[in-house]
């Protein structure tokens, strides 16, 4: 059986042009940083700039596979401008479906869910 391309065109797009990669650029009343890693080299950091309960700016750094990089970028794009409380509804499986990540590789983006949970804990909005 021919190997299936594990990367959808949307995933490739987010991987190649992650506009939310890097550090926060603005000034905010609250800055939060969530750092997670899997203990075997994969690491993800999400930084949030927050004003009045709104995620004004989201940025990430990742030493990770393409799936997690693309998922982090999509997360930042999707949640920037939303209320912090909306993070409670976040599930990585939704992003996995959107990026057409093969089921066998969805475990790789659980770190994103861990990072979001950490952000919520930092704001006292844990679920």
């Amino acid at each position: 059986m021919a190997p299936q391309d594990p990367y959808s065109s949307l995933l490739r797009q987010y991987f190649v042009s992650p506009v939310h990669a890097g550090a926060l650029r603005g000034e905010y009343s609250l800055r939060l940083l969530a750092k997670v890693d899997d203990g075997s080299g994969t690491a993800l950091q999400i930084e949030a700039g927050i004003d009045e309960g709104t995620l004004k700016e989201l940025r990430f750094h990742a030493l990770a596979c393409p799936h997690l990089i693309a998922a982090a970028e999509l997360f930042c794009e999707r949640y920037e401008g939303r209320q912090i409380a909306t993070l409670r509804d976040f599930r990585s499986i939704g992003i996995a479906r959107e990026l057409a990540i093969p089921v066998s590789k969805t475990g790789r983006i659980l770190l994103l869910e861990d990072a979001v949970t950490l952000l919520l804990q930092e704001t006292g909005n844990e679920t």
Binding site: A21, G22, K35, A43, H61, L63
Partner: peptide, 11 residues
């Protein structure tokens, strides 16, 4: 260089 820019600072 692309992946280096994505890398968390302490790594």
């Amino acid at each position: 260089n692309h992946l280096g820019k994505l890398r968390p600072p302490e790594t």
